Amino acid sequence: MLKPGVEVVKLSGVINSATSQDLRQSLNQLIEKGAKTILVDFQDVTFMDSSGLGTLVLAFKTLRASDSKLAICSLNEQVRILFELTSMDQVFEIFPNQAEFHQTLLAKN
């Protein structure tokens, strides 16, 4: 059961300069819709480069400005290393999976 205001974006395949534009549009639509929390699920992502990361950072800043949150879950090894190398693992809330995210969210209320 999703909490009101929580949107989940499931990504798949490769997130690079060719696909990060679509990701940006999806996130912007959710932000405009008034999503309070967006969870980006990386379970089916095989690879992400810096342009994908840049898109997430932009969305993160936009959401933070409107008092909303962006969280991330289910990173594979390559994506996790990208987050760690850029210290973005310190910026984003990263969860092992969706269940863990929802549990934490429920515990906060």
Rank of each mutant, 00 (worst) to 15 (best):
A99G: 11
V40H: 02
E32A: 15
D44Q: 12
L56G: 03
G13M: 10
G34T: 04
R80Y: 14
L30A: 14
T37Q: 12
E7F: 07
C73V: 04
S50I: 08
S12M: 00
S17V: 13
F83Y: 12
C73I: 01
K108C: 06
D41Q: 10
I94V: 05
S17T: 02
R80E: 05
Q103H: 11
L58N: 13
V8M: 05
A18K: 11
S50W: 01
G5L: 03
M88E: 00
A59H: 11
K36L: 13
L85R: 04
M88H: 04
F92K: 00
V14D: 02
G13R: 05
H102C: 07
G13S: 10
T46D: 07
S87G: 14
K3A: 12
A18R: 14
T46V: 09
R24M: 06
V79T: 12
L30P: 03
A59Y: 06
I94C: 00
Q29R: 13
K33I: 10
D89V: 04
S50M: 04
L23T: 03
Q103Y: 07
V45M: 14
A65Y: 07
D41Y: 11
Q103G: 10
E32G: 04
L53I: 01
V79S: 11
L2R: 15
G13H: 02
F42V: 04
G34S: 02
S20A: 13
A18N: 11
I15N: 00
T86C: 12
Q21S: 08
L63Q: 13
E32R: 15
K10H: 15
A71H: 08
I31Q: 04
L56K: 01
S87H: 12
I94E: 08
I81D: 03
Q29P: 03
Q21D: 07
E32D: 13
I31N: 02
L27N: 05
S66R: 10
G34Q: 00
Q90C: 06
L58W: 09
S87E: 15
I38Y: 00
N76E: 02
T46S: 15
Q98Y: 10
D49M: 09
T19G: 06
K69M: 09
E32I: 15
N97D: 12
F101C: 04
I38R: 03
Q25H: 12
S17H: 11
L63T: 01
A35V: 00
L27E: 01
E100S: 09
K10S: 14
F95N: 08
V14H: 06
M48Q: 03
V14C: 04
N109P: 11
L82K: 02
K10P: 10
T86S: 14
E100G: 00
F47Y: 13
E32W: 04
L39K: 04
I72D: 00
A65F: 06
V14P: 05
Q98T: 15
K33W: 08
Q103I: 07
S26V: 15
L11W: 01
A107V: 13
